[in-house]
Every structure is written in C-alpha cells, then in structure tokens.
Design a binder for these strands. Structure first.
Length: 579
RNA sequence: GGGUUUGUAGCUCAGUUGGAUAGAGCAGUGCCCUUCUAAGGCAAAGGUCGGGGAUUCGAAUUCCUCCAAGCCCA
C-alpha cells in the first residue's frame, strides 16, 4: 500500500515542480495543532537559493497543488509554512487499509542478523546490569524481525572465567572424594551432576565473598581455573555439569523477562577457532611483539587519538577476551553465515569492540563484509551517579528487584479489586510488575545512562508499562460488552486525532529500527494510549445513540487495542485481558 | 594526561536534516466517578535549555571557548 507520508511527499513534490522549484521536498507533522495535521517547511529552506521571500514561494506552491482527495484546508503562514489537514473520508479509508497492512508479515530482506545480547555469567545470578541488555536486545530482535530481517539471538554466556574455578572449588570443599578430583581416574564420569540448582545458586556467591578476604583461597581458585583451561579431565567433566545446570537457571531468569534466545552459546564455544585465528594473524604478518605481548596495531590516520593496539596474546602467551571475541566473529560467519552482528552491550565496552572490529577487518579473516554494529547502552547508575550497588557493595540481584516490584503490584491489585481470585491477583501482579520494570528500562533512550531508582520501577502511573496495560484492559472491557462485528466506519472531527495517531505506528517502528532504539516504540505506545484515554473520557461508546458513530468508535477502540498489543509485543512485554 | 559521553522544570527524561509558543511523566495545586475499569481524564503552575562568544531571517540543535560530572584508555 502507499503510505500517507509518501502520498503527501509526492503531491508536494509535484506542486513545487509545477511552480518551478525542482528541489527535495519534505512534509512533517504540524508543530502547532490548530494550524494543521501536517506542514511543509520547504519554502523556508528554498528562500536563499531562489532569492525570494519564503512566503511567496509558499503561495506559488499552494497555487500549483494538484487536485487530490487527501489534503484539505491548506493555509500559508508567516514566514512561509504551508499548513494543511487530512480529509476525514480519506483518513477513514486509509486507516482501515493500514490496519490490514500491518497485520501482514513484511517482505523478507535477505539480511541475516545475529544479535548478541545476553552476557550472563554461568554460575552467577543475574543482576540489574543484565536487565538492559536483555530488554533492549530482545526488543531490537523483534523490531528487526518485524522489518523483515532474519534474526538470531545469541545469549553469549560467560562460561570460561574465574567463576568456574570458584564453583569447582566449592564442589571440592563439599566432597573432596568425588572422582572429578582424582587425578589418576581414567574411567567415565557420572552423567548426573553432583549438585542441584539450589546448591549451585549459593556456591559462587559464597566462594567469591570468601576469596576476597582469603588470598590463599583466591590463589587456589586461580590455579583450578588455569588447570580447567588447560584441559584437566575431571575439571572439564565437572565444568560441563556446571554449564548445563547453570543454563537452566539462567533460562528461568531470562524467561521471566521474556528474553528468548535462539542460541545458547558461550565464550568457550569459539575456543575451537582461536588457534586458527592466532595462526592467521601471526603468519599473515599482522602482529608484532611488544613487551612480550603479541599485538596488532589498529590505529588509523584519521583518528583523533591513537587507538591502543588489539592484544592477541599476553606476555604469558595466554588467550585474552579480545582474542575470544575475534574467534567468535569467525565462528558466526562459518556456522551461521551472518551478514550483520549486533552487539547489545554496555557503552563502557566500546573501545574494546572498536579494536576487535578493526582487527577483524585489517587481517581480512572474514570472507564477506560483515556489518559489525556496536549498539551500546548506558549504565544503570545509583543516585550518586555511579554504577548501582546495594549497601553491601554488590549489584542488586534481579530476583530481589523482581520480588520488590511484584510485592508492590500485589498490594495495589489486591487493594483495588476484591472480586479476583488469589490466583488471578498473583498472575496480574506478576505481569504488571514485569511491564513496569521493562517499560521503565526501555523508554529511556538507549545510549544514555539511567539512574536506578526502585520507586521508578514500582511506579504504575503515567508513562509506565502498567498504564499501557490498563489502557488495553479498558478497551477490552468495552469490546466485551458491545457487538463486535461492526463494519460501517466514518470519522468524526473529534475522533480524527486518534485515527491520525494510529497511522503513525510504522514511522515509530522505522525510527526504532534505524536507531536500534526501542524507546521510540515506548514513546509511540504511550502517545497512543494517552490519545485513547482522552477519547475514552470524552465520549461514551456503549451508550452512543447514533449507530454510525457508535460503530466507528467501536472500530477505533478495536484498532487501538490491537495496535497497543502490537507495540508491547515489539517491546517483549506481556499484556493482560483484565486487571 | 589523552579520548569519549553527558549537562533542558524540584526529580526522571523527550525534543526530527537548524523553524512558529522548548514538551512528557513524577512530586505539588484545583476540578471530574448514580454511564464503557479513577492504575484514568481536564485545567493551572513550574525554564537564564551549564556559562560566554560566533555563524543567520531564525540556535536547545552547528562551530569556538570555559565550567561541571560520568565512563574508557594510560
């Protein structure tokens, strides 16, 4: 279908052309509502080029506007704006077509995108820092899919670090007689892990805490990790158990946030490509040795400041985080044949990724020109402006936060609605809590740091997730009480604002797509909900006497409900039928 | 020290390639539930857009400079 923006642009381009101005024309929303739905500011931009007053250009153009059924009530305002409204009959038809159009799946783009947005560490519980990556990444994946890209989400677990050594130590401490610790053991290791999920949960925090004060313990853990990475059989077997139990735990947490990954790979999975990468770099002559470390220079002439070299191997000859990252890119090309990789990670990692990306390009290890995108997000800060920590200096656990918000929601639901069963109250408060949390996280522009504030996440009024959910339930409530299959539709003056808002959905999604920023979808959802609530308060729908008017209002209600659900789906936030 | 990001209402944040009167939410004020869910609606109030300079018909937006903070690298 031809979108309104394109039609408008076409009409104005024609008019400018006929009036003798062969230029790029743009049409945007009118800044002042009473003057029009849209406006064209192009005369202001052309004044200099044609040495003419913008107002006279505007008048010229208006005189040449081609006949059409879209634009009405055109006016020219100083110093040279062309303001106009959209014809209501046209809008009514357009809206109906539009609602059908967005239901249909987009044409596929042939672009295969891998989105890296988990980053949880095995054996460590998720904390508030993981919230943004999961929320933003999942939404970006859905937005890109909506626009037709073929998306794969990878959790990219941290499964190769010191925390693994800590857990192995904890297992040893509990039972040093297990076969995993017998160096002479040659046989098969047990299939069942020697611990369950609940036990695993406390192992890392316990040892981590103690290792901070106990240097001997810390050294032991480091040694275990070293032995694990060098392939000690018993440790590797135990490590596999830790990974599998850990994945279940982590999946539970991500499920709560509605973040669903297609791939459950970790840092260790790219291990098989690291030797190849190292050979490629060294034999290709791309590296040099500096202070014992093997590095690759990645600075460019046009850099304002010198970008530090990419480090392939440290002075001890060990593989580094950056090397693993490079190997992961190679893995993603070989195994998944991706065209683009999107990294949804904390802004603070930008330099690291710039080095990795540059190194990958410089050494030419990739077969095709993969688009490597750093999509950084701001840090969750405490009220002091520094990365958020609880009183005992730790990042707040995701579970603790969830419980707090849920308790607040529970209080609210059970206080206001007495006729709900306890099960319903439980379910409603759960969905409300998650929506509050996710929406608060998503509605701030991705790149900005955001201040962590429990009260904000617990707020259910105003520009919040629950407000959107509430609006949907209000619409549902009406739709459940009226005749549903109405078809006659015409727009009255008072309802045109809601209709105009509905047809802006695709613009919002497009912006979100271009900027990798779900906040534009949040913004749109809020504006639409707000518009609907105004419409709701102003007019009685069930009791409307005029049949045509009533039918039209029902259809608008249905459209709004659908659209809001669609937005929430793109944000990966669950909605409710009633609350 | 180098780089980078940010500074907009009391607080948290929007602000399209420079455009008309800088917008929301929260907090606070005043209204609106015998009609569809008041987690709502309406109205008013709240601003030297960090300071100063430059560019021009026109700057929160571009440039320069200074101030303050965060982050990364050393």
């Amino acid at each position: 279908m031809e979108l309104l923006n394109d039609s408008l642009k076409q009409i104005f381009t024609q008019a400018f052309c006929d009036a003798g101005y062969n230029d790029d024309v743009s049409v945007n929303e009118c800044a002042i509502e009473k003057f029009g739905d849209f406006q064209c500011q192009t005369p202001l931009l052309l004044a200099k080029k044609y040495h003419k007053a913008p107002i006279s250009i505007a008048n010229d153009v208006v005189a040449h506007l081609p006949k059409n059924r879209i634009i009405t009530n055109v006016t020219v305002a100083n110093p040279g704006y062309i303001n106009f409204f959209i014809d209501e009959n046209y809008l009514a038809n357009y809206l109906q077509e539009y609602m059908q159009f967005i239901e249909k799946p987009r044409e596929k783009t042939n672009k295969k995108v891998l989105i890296d947005y988990g980053g949880a560490n095995c054996a460590k519980p998720l904390h508030v820092g993981h919230l943004r990556s999961a929320d933003i990444g999942e939404s970006i994946k859905r937005i890109m899919s909506f626009e037709g890209d073929n998306c794969i989400g990878d959790v990219h677990l941290g499964d190769w670090g010191l925390q693994m050594g800590m857990v192995i130590y904890a297992v040893w401490e509990k039972n040093p007689n297990l076969v995993y610790f017998d160096e002479n053991y040659q046989g098969e290791y047990p299939k069942e892990p020697p611990f369950d999920m609940e036990e695993l949960k406390v192992m890392y925090p316990n040892i981590s805490q103690r290792a901070k004060q106990d240097e001997q313990l810390y050294e032991k853990v480091k040694h275990i990790t070293f032995e694990l990475q060098n392939g000690r059989r018993g440790y590797v077997a135990l490590w596999k158990h830790i990974i599998s139990v850990s994945k279940k735990l982590i999946k539970e947490d991500y499920d709560k946030l509605n973040a669903h990954f297609d791939l459950w790979l970790g840092e260790s999975d790219s291990k098989k490509y690291t030797d190849e990468v190292i050979d490629y770099v060294i034999n290709g002559g791309y590296s040099r040795v500096s202070d014992g470390a093997t590095i690759v220079d990645v600075s460019q002439d046009d850099d304002k400041a010198e970008i530090p070299p990419f480090m392939l191997l440290n002075s001890a000859g060990s593989v580094l985080y950056s090397t693993t990252e490079l190997a992961t890119i190679v893995q993603r090309e070989k195994e998944f044949d991706v065209d683009e990789i999107v990294y949804v990670v904390d802004n603070r990692q930008e330099l690291h990724f710039v080095q990795v990306f540059r190194c990958a390009r410089k050494i030419g290890i990739l077969k095709k020109d993969i688009d490597l995108k750093f999509v950084g997000f701001g840090t969750m800060n405490g009220k002091d402006g520094k990365p958020y920590k609880t009183r005992d200096g730790k990042a707040m656990g995701l579970d603790d936060l969830l419980e707090m918000v849920k308790a607040k929601a529970y209080e609210k639901v059970s206080a206001s609605k007495t006729n709900y069963s306890s099960k319903e109250i439980e379910n409603i408060s759960n969905v409300v809590a998650i929506s509050a949390l996710k929406f608060a996280d998503l509605c701030v522009l991705r790149t900005k740091d955001l201040s962590f504030d429990v009260d904000k996440f617990c707020s259910f009024e105003g520009k919040t997730g629950p407000y959107i959910l509430y609006t949907i339930t209000r619409a549902n409530s009406i739709l459940n009480k009226v005749e549903k299959d109405v078809t006659s539709f015409s727009l009255s003056k008072e309802d045109r604002k809601l209709a105009l808002c509905l047809v802006k959905f695709l613009d919002a999604v497009k912006t979100a797509y271009d900027k990798f920023a779900p906040s534009y979808v949040c913004d749109y959802a809020y504006t639409l909900a707000n518009e609907f609530n105004t419409f709701y308060a102003k007019s009685s729908i069930m009791y409307e006497q005029d049949e045509t008017k009533k039918h039209s209002k029902i259809i608008l209600t249905k459209y709004t409900q659908k659209m809001l659900k669609k937005c929430m789906d793109l944000l990966a936030i669950n909605t409710l039928e009633k609350m």
